[in-house]
């Protein structure tokens, strides 16, 4: 059998989700946002909840997420997505509501909205893309930027005395009684993508339980902001980001995971 004979509908094992639109994503080549979007779409498709899902996009690189995910969507002001999602869910409890935010949006300008939505135990899914940089505005320091890491506003590297410490917001949120599931994943290898997808699926399914926020951090690369090739950036992420932001579940079924 020649390989070309294999290309038949009955042999199809993977294709882009139908919950993704045909729009070409504006993200830089190799950006984790695209992979994360794909996984969200696959989860919505597999759970059969496209007609009940409402997404909330942030300000940042993923501000235009609504152009790619074929579900009802609202674009929030910078940092306010958890407040927006709170009301959508409270007024439409049968809907599956998720926020999709970057590190600046969720952990700097929107810290209060993030913490209070989590503390109230809103029955929403929060997806947090942490690439330790402000990508859209040109690569400035984010709350999660590592010490010593060079960005447009820390050209000599992040200095703790000047800029404070990298913010492990996910560990902080896991301490709140309103979070039910808190996990940290990545999407740079096939194995990590599979785990991240399982986490996202659980985070959406949890909304049925009405037990609080399901929070999925995805540690991602910003190769443009980090000034590396996509493959180099993924390697740098493994070596530098993962020690500070270790992958794995932090809180499951309302219980902190003992390490």
């Amino acid at each position: 059998m020649s390989n070309l004979d294999i290309v038949k509908p009955e042999n199809l094992v993977y294709q882009k989700s139908k919950v993704l639109t045909e729009n070409v994503m504006h993200y830089c080549p190799g950006c984790g946002h695209g992979t994360a979007h794909r996984l969200v779409a696959e989860v919505i498709e597999e759970l059969g909840i496209q007609d009940k899902t409402v997404g909330v996009s942030p300000v940042g690189c993923s501000v235009l997420a609504y152009n790619y995910l074929d579900v009802d969507f609202q674009e929030a002001a910078h940092g306010r997505a958890p407040a927006v999602a709170t009301a959508i869910k409270r007024l439409n409890p049968d809907c599956y509501v998720f926020t999709y935010q970057g590190d600046g949006d969720l952990a700097a300008i929107g810290t209060a909205e993030t913490i209070h939505a989590c503390n109230r135990g809103e029955n929403i899914t929060m997806i947090f893309i942490n690439n330790a940089i402000y990508g859209m505005t040109g690569g400035q320091m984010a709350p999660t930027t590592l010490l010593g890491m060079k960005t447009a506003t820390t050209p000599y590297g992040r200095d703790q005395k000047l800029n404070g410490w990298p913010f492990q917001v996910t560990e902080l949120l896991a301490q709140l009684p309103g979070t039910y599931y808190v996990t940290r994943q990545s999407v740079h290898t096939p194995a990590n993508v599979r785990k991240a997808k399982a986490a996202l699926k659980k985070a959406f399914e949890n909304q049925k339980l009405e037990k609080g926020v399901s929070f999925v951090e995805i540690v991602s690369s910003c190769n443009s902001g980090w000034k590396m090739t996509p493959v180099q950036a993924n390697k740098w992420m493994e070596e530098n980001m993962f020690p500070k932001y270790p992958l794995g579940d932090i809180k499951v079924d309302g219980e902190l995971v003992k390490k």
């Binding site: 059998m1 390989n3 294999i6 290309v7 038949k8 042999n11 199809l12 094992v13 993977y14 294709q15 882009k16 989700s17 993704l20 070409v24 994503m25 993200y27 080549p29 190799g30 950006c31 984790g32 946002h33 695209g34 992979t35 794909r38 999407v187 740079h188 290898t189 096939p190 993508v193 599979r194």
Partner: peptide, 26 residues
């Protein structure tokens, strides 16, 4: 080359969803 085993690893890490994968037993 023709070494593809249809594991879909390429497709599932592709940020832009540009790869479709077909697979048969042989």
């Amino acid at each position: 080359n023709d070494n593809c085993i249809g594991c879909a690893s390429c497709a599932i890490v592709c940020p832009d969803g540009v790869i479709s994968v077909y697979k048969v037993k042989c």
